[in-house]
Design a protein around this nucleic acid. Structure first.
Lengths: 159, 159
DNA sequence: CTCAGTGCAAACTATTTGCAAAGTC
DNA sequence: GACTTTGCAAATAGTTTGCACTGAG
């Protein structure tokens, strides 16, 4: 993680008279250092693994702060719980979600963005944000499936 | 509601050896007759109001069936609970959600649909479904806001 | 008459909150 | 030292489940 990223977090805390506790720092760096889409349980589990004990309540409370200050986005993939992703650097993007392996890929498509703005203008709707999630099967999984089919066909031919 | 809509529901039940109970019929017709985006509590409340007592469990179980058979879509607007909308007739669409008045408007834009298909093809991703929700302020709310501003400005001038 | 469906209450999952103890500035 | 923050456990919200009773076909 770039030094200035942590600095900007510290500064945000300072500005709001919030304290830089070890828990907050750990949570922030853990998220900022990866491009994963974290669930609360993931974080707790990882910390446990490293013998760092951070309570569930603290994780939730810290994530709220990170969301409020725009470091992290709270994303709903319809799983019945939220995930959190670091956004300070890359900014807005949408998601492709593989229903097979669970991989979440980010993308940003200017055509889609533009058309959405147009469409809102046409309807007098003033957009503040949007969520676009495309569910399906990713390339890797499709290839594996194809391989499996081939194997199966071969087996059948030999039967 | 069109007669054949109810018929197709009955038939789906028959095909699966499920029974047409009064509860299932009520829930189905209630949803199919409106274009609302129902929450479970809405449904229960409405039924209570009309002295029809359907348990929470039955509502959930019936909605699952309706979703499975493609009559209803379970939609997540990030409110921490799900909403359900009738889709048998109008098919796929996306949503504009007013953050002020809560109104949910449906739309279908062929440009957006096409571009998404293209984008998936480019990446070898095989889409099965997508969710696009645009949040913002609807035209009506914007106009009311404008009116309120005018009133306020007038008041200020008179002060 | 039989098996599926209902209602109830208890269970479960994700998240939030009150409070005493601990830690930051 | 003052006042935040933490951890814990209890509370809450939405949803699911087990089970005895009811009812549709």
């Amino acid at each position: 993680m770039k030094e200035e990223v942590l600095e900007s977090f510290k500064e945000a805390l300072r500005r709001e008279n919030l304290k830089l506790t070890p828990q907050r720092k750990s949570i922030f760096t853990r998220i900022a250092d990866s491009h994963e889409h974290w669930e609360v349980e993931d974080l707790i589990y990882e910390f446990r693994n490293e013998n760092e004990r951070i309570s569930r309540a603290t994780v939730y409370r810290t994530l709220d702060i990170l969301v409020d200050y725009g470091f992290v986005r709270k994303v709903d993939f319809g799983e019945g719980r939220f995930r959190y992703e670091y956004i300070a650097e890359q900014g807005h993007h949408d998601h492709l979600i593989c229903e097979q392996c669970g991989e979440i890929m980010e993308f940003l498509d200017e055509d889609l963005e533009r058309r959405q703005r147009e469409l809102c203008r046409e309807r007098g709707f003033q957009p503040t944000k949007h969520v676009l999630q495309i569910y399906g099967i990713c390339q890797k999984c499709r290839e594996e499936e194809k391989d499996a089919d081939t194997v199966q066909e071969t087996a059948e031919r030999h039967a």
